[in-house]
Computed example of a mutant assay.
Amino acid sequence: MPALLPPDLGAFPSLRGLIAFEATVRLGSMTAAANEMHMTQPAVSQRIRALEDSLGCPLFDRRGGRLSLNARGQAFHEELTPGLARLCGAIGDLRCRMRKASPVVSIAAGAGFTHMWLRPRLERLEQAFPDRSFRLLPIDRDEAPEMQKADIALRFGPHQQDDLTDTLVVPEKVFPVCSPEYARQHNLGAELDTDALQRITLLHLDMRDPRWLNWASWCRLSQLPPPPLERAFPYHNFPLLLNAVTHHQGVALGWSHVTRDMLASGQLVALGPHVTRKSHGYRLSVRNPDSAMIAPVVDWLAREFAG
């Protein structure tokens, strides 16, 4: 049996440091990561410093009081996240089996939807079905094996009416979002117009995926001239993007269900125009639709989508 680690790899980084790094990137700050991990911010910072020392290179740029991934950090995060998710899932599954736990239902969706919509509902889902456990899988690639094997999968993209393999459960509705403070500072009205697009900071995902609207395609569907994208600031994942929006750094495009909780809490305000593509959205597919363990969970999710 071959060794799991090559002999020249050196000291393997601490798993705690890797988890602290992933949480900091996903949530946009060490403070938010500390809150999620029930730790202090200095403790998270210490774990990340130890990780960087172990790897032999910095992962963040720490200039002007702002924390942002450098090129090495971004590449490392993109490679790390799927493997870390599998590792944590494997640990959780083994613990459940050792405790003779209830059956595990796996739910896979894109990282943004998982962290912004599914994860906040996980506690209520567990309360509704105390006889089973749930495993959330943040996966952005539809062709990933974990997405194919999940009991319930939520994929984003176009939907064909005659496709019987999945159901369109969340039609796409997209609109600009910003913090209330940013809207006041820049005197933004209910809808963005050509003048506003010229003077605000646009934030966007640095993701070249034709399934998703970007500022250029949103402007085209809104019948507005394309904005000056050379001034747009890119982010590499949606939770990090929304974290920047809540910190008054600019305006981003928001998808209705993903931003719904933040709009309801007042962290974000929605601006117009609203763009709806009824042919696009989140499609739900079930590996065993007739399963007595899975079908009630699908019904629960459907009620949440409709709420």
Rank of each mutant, 00 (worst) to 15 (best):
L137H: 01
L203W: 01
L213T: 02
R141Y: 11
A90V: 01
L192D: 00
P176W: 01
L168A: 13
E123S: 13
A150S: 14
K149G: 12
L202P: 02
R97W: 12
F156N: 10
E143Y: 08
Y182Q: 05
A190V: 06
R132V: 02
L205I: 11
D209P: 09
K173I: 07
K173T: 09
W212N: 08
T201P: 05
N214T: 06
Q185W: 10
M207R: 14
I91D: 08
L205R: 07
L125P: 04
M116A: 06
A90R: 06
A109I: 08
F134W: 12
D206R: 12
R135I: 00
A128F: 08
R184K: 15
L197D: 00
V105I: 15
R184W: 05
P158A: 14
S106L: 05
W215F: 02
T167N: 11
A216C: 11
S102G: 06
A190N: 08
G112Q: 03
R132M: 14
M98T: 04
R135P: 01
H186G: 09
M98I: 07
D142G: 11
R199C: 04
L205T: 03
L125N: 05
V170C: 11
T194I: 01
I139H: 03
Y182L: 13
G92I: 08
D93K: 09
Q160F: 03
L94G: 09
W117Q: 00
P171I: 03
A108T: 04
P210N: 15
E172W: 02
F156R: 10
L188T: 01
T167I: 12
F129G: 07
G112M: 03
H115I: 05
Q148L: 15
L154I: 06
F175N: 01
Q160M: 07
P120T: 06
D166L: 10
I91Y: 11
A101H: 11
P158K: 08
A150I: 06
R199V: 02
C96W: 01
L164D: 15
V104I: 14
H204N: 06
E146S: 13
V104F: 02
P158M: 09
H204L: 04
R95T: 09
I152R: 06
K173F: 04
Q160S: 14
A144F: 04
D151T: 11
C96N: 15
A90D: 10
R97E: 15
T114Q: 04
D151E: 15
T167C: 14
G112L: 02
E126Q: 15
D131P: 04
Q198M: 01
L213P: 03
Q185H: 12
A153H: 05
